[in-house]
Design a protein around this nucleic acid. Sequence first.
DNA 1: CAGGATCCGTTTCGATACTG
DNA 2: CAGTATCGAAACGGATCCTG
Lengths: 121, 121
Amino acid sequence: MLGDRWSLLIIRDMMLRGSRTFKEFLDSYERIATNILADRLRKLISYGVITTEPDPTDGRKRIYLLTEKGIALAPVMTEMVLWAADHEETGNQALVRLMREDKEKFLAGVRRRWAESRSRE
Amino acid sequence: MLGDRWSLLIIRDMMLRGSRTFKEFLDSYERIATNILADRLRKLISYGVITTEPDPTDGRKRIYLLTEKGIALAPVMTEMVLWAADHEETGNQALVRLMREDKEKFLAGVRRRWAESRSRE
DNA sequence: CAGGATCCGTTTCGATACTG
DNA sequence: CAGTATCGAAACGGATCCTG
């Protein structure tokens, strides 16, 4: 799954933007077709990187969550974002600044938010 | 180029195995078709991640080298290898051990070897 | 309306054969 | 050795349709 463009973007949006639903992924600024998105979500589930469950407050929705294996990708994503910020188009500047100031602290924050969202389920 | 399987493997082999020629990339254990390899090398050059020049000792060969922008991907590759080692098939165990013992030291070594190979050109 | 599935033209891939 | 040419197979992506 490393090496698939859409999978990486999905993981990035889940990890850094907190995206959780099919619609939120679709609205992410990069264009993705619904069939491709559905396919990648299925594959990510089969890889054990994410899981899915119905939204308890809205039966129509499904919620997608990172697993332990998924959140373990945080260091990879962080390094990717930092490299892109240095060498390609600039993304979220505030986020990049946070990452650069203290990488370990930033990662700890990502993991903490993930653990908290898990415990609410 | 992040998000393309072959590009990542080429960069990995250049960075961690010291691969430098078309043939060395082909012989890398993952199968890659010659046209795909040529295409990815071309794209990596256009991205500014690698450069190429004729082999001074063998006119038939071309040598591919990482640029500054390319070697800056070392932290990304390292985190990818560590994640894969923890969660997927196991690759080069000795390398993984080195990375885990002291990540910064490992990265310094990669950068030093790269600088030395540059200065020999 | 959210989360998909299906259809379909277009792009990319990958295996093999061939060339400088 | 380092690629290019060719061609069928697979993946993509857009539009649209379906279902709870």
